[in-house]
């Protein structure tokens, strides 16, 4: 007999072996189904709700399509909230790149073996502890009677701290109640997410390219500008997706650090939970979706998706 008797499982496996498309479809059915129904459906529902409005008198949702809710979104107060959030996200992203890059470069280029593992772990270890614990720890560090203030005092520089805190946009009564403090905490929290993609990008950069550039007469600065930076930009873009989107959507840090000025997340929570104004909350929620959509399009152009 030329053929062996195969069990049911073997026969199924053989059946699927040649039908690759079917295999792929079955494999993806569950996650794609989840994505479409749960995620896509929720977003669609959100968008739909933003075209309803809340009835002034009864407080119930009036389901006739209208643009009135969207008109409310474009008021000065709400635009300020959006601007504040986007501004902070941008600042945090830029700072993460500036701080993260030397670190990533050093780890990728100048360490190996045990030292490298130790450094990568050092970058990652904060992620193992609770987010809230870390934020509360920073609140203590930045308090007006906290470690940061004490540091300034020890160096006799408390007047410098006072000057920093008196600056209009970023200052406040203490570091912990200022935008500057918020910015510092955001940058700290999301830094690992920037360092790792950048480190990967630098590691993928062949040493010989940098040598070639130097060999052809480029100073280290020129080599960085013309060779290193363009080639690691996809990695930077990939890391920036994390820092930007995570800051954009965060609603916990602004309630613990800072002067309580609302960010988009808090505004949405207030409208939905506190006021029961679902249409306005939905409309506000669309803002980060649109912003991230634009951001991701830009990041994709820079090659971030390949770098991920």
């Amino acid at each position: 007999m030329p053929f062996r008797e195969f069990s049911l499982i073997r026969r199924l496996s053989t059946y699927f072996y040649t039908r690759r498309r079917l295999r792929l479809a079955l494999l993806l059915a569950l996650p794609v189904g989840w994505l479409v129904v749960v995620y896509g459906g929720s977003l669609g529902s959100l968008l739909l709700n933003s075209f309803f409005r809340i009835d002034s008198f009864s407080g119930t949702i009036d389901r006739t399509p209208t643009l009135e809710t969207w008109r409310q979104v474009f008021t000065d107060a709400n635009m300020a909230v959006a601007g504040r959030t986007i501004g902070m996200a941008t600042a945090v992203t830029i700072a993460s790149v500036l701080i993260g890059f030397p670190l990533a470069y050093r780890i990728a280029r100048f360490t190996s073996g045990r030292a490298k593992t130790a450094l990568v772990l050092a970058v990652l270890i904060p992620l193992w502890s609770s987010y809230l614990v870390r934020v509360y720890a920073w609140k203590l560090l930045l308090a007006s009677e906290g470690v940061a203030a004490w540091f300034f005092n020890v160096f006799g520089a408390s007047s410098v701290l006072g000057w920093i805190l008196s600056l209009p946009l970023i200052g406040g009564p203490s570091l912990s109640t200022s935008s500057l403090g918020q910015f510092l905490v955001f940058t700290y929290i999301w830094l690992p997410y920037m360092v790792l993609p950048m480190q990967a990008a630098v590691e993928r950069l062949p040493e010989s390219l940098l040598e070639a550039s130097a060999d052809l007469g480029a100073s280290p600065a020129t080599t960085f500008r013309r060779i290193t930076w363009p080639l690691i930009l996809p990695g930077v873009a990939a890391g920036s997706i994390f820092t930007f989107s995570l800051t954009l959507g965060d609603y916990i840090i602004p309630t613990i650090i800072g002067n309580s000025s609302p960010f988009i997340g808090l505004a949405i929570y207030s409208q939905q939970g506190v006021a029961g104004n679902l249409p306005l909350a939905a409309a506000l929620a669309i803002i980060p979706v649109v912003v991230m959509g634009l951001y991701l399009t830009g990041a994709r152009k820079l090659g971030a998706f390949e770098a991920l």
């Binding site: 062949p206 010989s208 040598e211 070639a212 130097a214 480029a218 100073s219």
Partner: peptide, 27 residues
């Protein structure tokens, strides 16, 4: 290296992948 009047042809060629041939040569 960038101060020496010496140029190198590398074993892996080390061509800059984000530049065209002309841009590489004129670098």
């Amino acid at each position: 290296p960038h101060a020496r009047d010496v140029n190198t042809v590398f074993q892996d060629y080390a061509l800059f992948p984000h530049m065209s041939v002309a841009e590489n040569v004129e670098y």
